[in-house]
Write a protein that binds this DNA or RNA. Structure first.
Lengths: 198, 198
DNA sequence: ACCGTAGTGGCACCGAGTGCCACCGACAAG
DNA sequence: CTTGTCGGTGGCACTCGGTGCCACTACGGT
């Protein structure tokens, strides 16, 4: 068999990665994101700067955890939705489900999202990461509507539902309610054509 | 009188700025954005690298022209809209009007938007520039609805209308129709709660 | 004992920005 | 005509993010 377990334990790499993440989030929380250098994060994690950039392609990536897995889960949930459900409802359900964190993880999520939504460098970086989400959602809409994924409706649904999710995160951060409620509130506005605006 | 005209002509600065913009757009069009160095742009514009960064804080900023003026115009148009008009319609009208370019300027706009929407570094940078647009639109919605500009509805309207505008630019770039038509199509979908999705 | 393989650290390098200083041309005041 | 001011300019050195290269180490398989 090719590619079986070898090298220094299967999860050693994941462990140092987690140490880097923790150190980075801690430093970014106590100082501005841009004033903290990659050297400082590496030092705090007990590794060299070079190794830091082997685990994370970018300083900004440390804030995102395993976002690729997040996108894959979202993709799976969208694929598993029923075709009886309205398209927007299926996307809302997938967003709610993929963001259903355990209570213990909420403080960490809060800090991550606060950084992503407020630090300019991370805000910019988010656009690139979210492009994957947009692609996945657009493909889902294209499947449901039998159109191309780069058509107006699939792309608009993808971008505006992400706008809804982002807004929900903003209001969730500012208040103390549940993220699921904020997501539903935003999606309801969107699906209803903003009923409160007459 | 203090601060009267002095130095090398009032518009000399604007002229070199325009030369840099032209040189940058030309180079970015013929090569990838990231492979072109600031030195090369400065050379092509006939100035030093140091001077380049005095006119543009960032390599990415060269693509955006005078975007601040663009945002100010949008703000003025939103303020000038009638309160009889539905809120979304007023925003759509402002977006259409602020993006009403002369035919001669369309090729340049196409190239700018193509770069912004496809080059990852510029895509990321756009988020920061568009944050100003979001703020202006959210304040307009807050004024119309008598709510706070950081509330759910103003923020959601701002972000999702920008999503509509972005999608309209995408489809405009892919096809050969008019930008105003694409903007109206996207805003109609949004205001109607996506009627084509049942 | 001999390998291949994966993680690591050090080093040199590139490119984006920035702070500092010295220069130059235009203008106004003496 | 000289002097001082001011704004644009260019050069230089520096920081920092990110990368390529190489040598070292630890491990497992043969």
């Amino acid at each position: 068999m090719i590619g079986t377990v070898t090298g220094p334990a299967p999860d050693a790499r994941e462990a140092t990665r987690a140490r880097i993440e923790a150190a980075a989030l801690d430093l970014f929380t106590r100082h501005d994101f841009e004033t903290v250098t990659a050297d400082e994060v590496a030092d705090a994690a007990g590794i060299s700067r070079r190794t830091f950039f082997r685990h994370f392609a970018t300083k900004a990536d440390t804030v995102w955890g395993d976002f690729h897995a997040h996108v894959l889960r979202l993709e799976g949930m969208l694929a598993a939705t029923s075709d009886d459900q309205p398209v927007l409802a299926s996307i809302c359900a997938a967003y709610v489900e993929v963001n259903d964190y355990a209570d213990a993880d909420l403080p960490l999520l809060r800090e991550r999202m606060r950084l992503i939504l407020t630090e300019p460098a991370l805000q910019a970086h988010s656009q690139v990461r979210y492009a994957d989400v947009d692609r996945v959602v657009a493909e889902h809409v294209a499947r449901r509507t039998g159109t191309r994924a780069d058509g107006l409706v699939p792309r608009l649904v993808a971008l505006s539902t992400r706008a809804a999710a982002t807004t929900a995160f903003e209001t969730w951060l500012a208040g103390d309610g549940s993220l699921a409620d904020d997501l539903h509130a935003a999606f309801d506005q969107l699906a209803g054509g903003f009923p409160t605006l007459r």
